[in-house]
Simulated assay, not measured.
Amino acid sequence: MTKAKKDFPEIEYINWRSGGGLGKQIMATAVLKALRSQKPKAVIHAMTSYPEAFTNLEFIDRTYMLNVVPHFYEDHKDYAVLEAEPYTDIDYRKGNLHLIESWCKMLGIQAPSSLSGIIELSDEEKAVAKQIKLQWKVDRPLVAFQPFGGTSYYSPQEAQNPVRPQHYRELKKEAAQAIVNHLTELGFAVVHIGLPTEPDLQNCYKLSDKEPMNPRYIFALLAECEFGIFIDSFAQHAWAALGKRDAIVLWGGTDPKTLGYTTNKNLSQQDLCTSIHCNRPNTFMFDFGGNGQPWRCVVGGKCMKYDPTTVIRKFLEVNAVDKLESFEKNLKKNNKDKE
């Protein structure tokens, strides 16, 4: 737990600003709630790269897109600006503090005891999710599965850019498909949480074939799912922010101590890489090589080369231990058939 600065100024009008991905903005809601606890009478206007993360939160007075806003200056010239970049904090980078704790420390806010964001769904959003499930005719336990990530909802075409800067946190398509196949054979239904521009998986429900689904409806669908298997991307943050537990989260280049949640089951492959959870490339720290290109892993991101059967075993141990024995028998049978 980090200590708050004692000289936090008496500010009555606050303009909060935060940029970055959807998962980061979900975490930001925990910082804003902590700010509200410390400043119960303040007027708090938040500017964010993802206003969808801040919807329906009673501790924020108004939310703006972090973009050009007409007449914003005239309306906010007397507001104090609160802005910090937690990815640059040394305690975060060394793995000493969770990102939420680092963010609070940098702003002089007492960190909350619960290190997860907050998502509040409206009745309309819940109704939309239930209607989607009815249209899908889901008749089995539903598993939310996010094997790919790191691409903005606002620029989905970047998912097809092979040289975009990103952490090593995605699964290979073949491994993702094998996980889906195992789950369906075990009697589960799977919804692929992702963008329509990401690799296409078979034998599962899709959010959309053309345009990205509104994140608010994705949150509501996650609330309707019984189980989750995720990489380190927005879905694992949303799962925790919804108060759900026991998702299987597959970690590689990023660190569960600084970006994850103890309420989930976090898997890492420590034996595959001596510098696992390196959090590289850290573009906020100008993590570029001599050629001006973002840092690239010299061992090809081995930390994310998960064996699908290992993932399924862990999923069953946590969520459906009664199916584990039959799964092992089928594996042995399939291996014999291949000999």
Results as ranks from 00 to 15, higher is better:
residue 241 A to Q: 07
residue 238 A to L: 04
residue 146 Q to K: 06
residue 189 A to W: 01
residue 216 R to K: 15
residue 172 K to L: 12
residue 177 Q to L: 02
residue 207 L to V: 06
residue 189 A to G: 09
residue 139 D to V: 11
residue 139 D to H: 13
residue 201 L to R: 02
residue 224 E to M: 00
residue 209 D to K: 14
residue 137 K to G: 03
residue 201 L to S: 04
residue 212 P to A: 08
residue 187 G to A: 08
residue 152 S to L: 04
residue 158 E to F: 12
residue 225 C to M: 12
residue 250 L to A: 09
residue 172 K to C: 11
residue 234 F to A: 15
residue 155 S to D: 12
residue 233 S to H: 05
residue 210 K to H: 15
residue 243 G to F: 02
residue 175 A to C: 03
residue 178 A to M: 08
residue 191 V to L: 10
residue 134 L to F: 01
residue 141 P to D: 09
residue 192 H to S: 06
residue 248 I to Y: 07
residue 182 H to V: 01
residue 157 Q to E: 15
residue 130 K to E: 13
residue 128 V to I: 12
residue 147 P to F: 04
residue 134 L to M: 10
residue 209 D to P: 00
residue 249 V to H: 02
residue 181 N to M: 03
residue 186 L to Q: 11
residue 211 E to S: 14
residue 170 E to R: 10
residue 173 K to V: 14
residue 192 H to K: 10
residue 178 A to P: 00
residue 134 L to H: 10
residue 198 E to A: 12
residue 171 L to E: 09
residue 178 A to N: 05
residue 235 A to K: 06
residue 132 I to S: 00
residue 223 A to S: 13
residue 228 G to S: 12
residue 147 P to D: 05
residue 173 K to E: 13
residue 213 M to R: 13
residue 195 L to R: 05
residue 162 P to Q: 10
residue 224 E to C: 05
residue 132 I to F: 07
residue 134 L to N: 11
residue 217 Y to H: 14
residue 165 P to T: 11
residue 249 V to M: 02
residue 237 H to W: 01
residue 152 S to M: 03
residue 239 W to M: 04
residue 203 N to G: 02
residue 130 K to V: 08
residue 213 M to Q: 12
residue 151 T to F: 04
residue 203 N to M: 05
residue 135 Q to N: 15
residue 246 D to M: 03
residue 132 I to L: 13
residue 193 I to Q: 02
residue 135 Q to V: 09
residue 239 W to I: 09
residue 199 P to W: 01
residue 197 T to N: 13
residue 196 P to Y: 00
residue 168 Y to S: 13
residue 211 E to R: 14
residue 144 A to I: 09
residue 223 A to P: 00
residue 153 Y to L: 14
residue 193 I to G: 00
residue 207 L to W: 09
residue 230 F to V: 02
residue 239 W to C: 04
residue 186 L to G: 07
residue 130 K to M: 06
residue 222 L to I: 07
residue 247 A to P: 07
residue 157 Q to I: 09
residue 131 Q to R: 13
residue 173 K to C: 04
residue 184 T to C: 11
residue 148 F to A: 01
residue 189 A to P: 00
residue 145 F to H: 11
residue 244 K to N: 03
residue 249 V to N: 03
residue 147 P to T: 03
residue 250 L to R: 02
residue 147 P to M: 03
residue 155 S to P: 01
residue 231 I to N: 15
residue 165 P to N: 08
residue 145 F to A: 11
residue 173 K to H: 10
residue 188 F to V: 10
residue 195 L to E: 05
residue 225 C to G: 11
residue 222 L to M: 13
residue 202 Q to N: 15
residue 201 L to E: 04
residue 161 N to R: 10
residue 192 H to N: 14
residue 221 L to Q: 01
residue 142 L to R: 09
residue 237 H to L: 00
residue 240 A to L: 07
residue 216 R to T: 13
residue 188 F to Y: 15
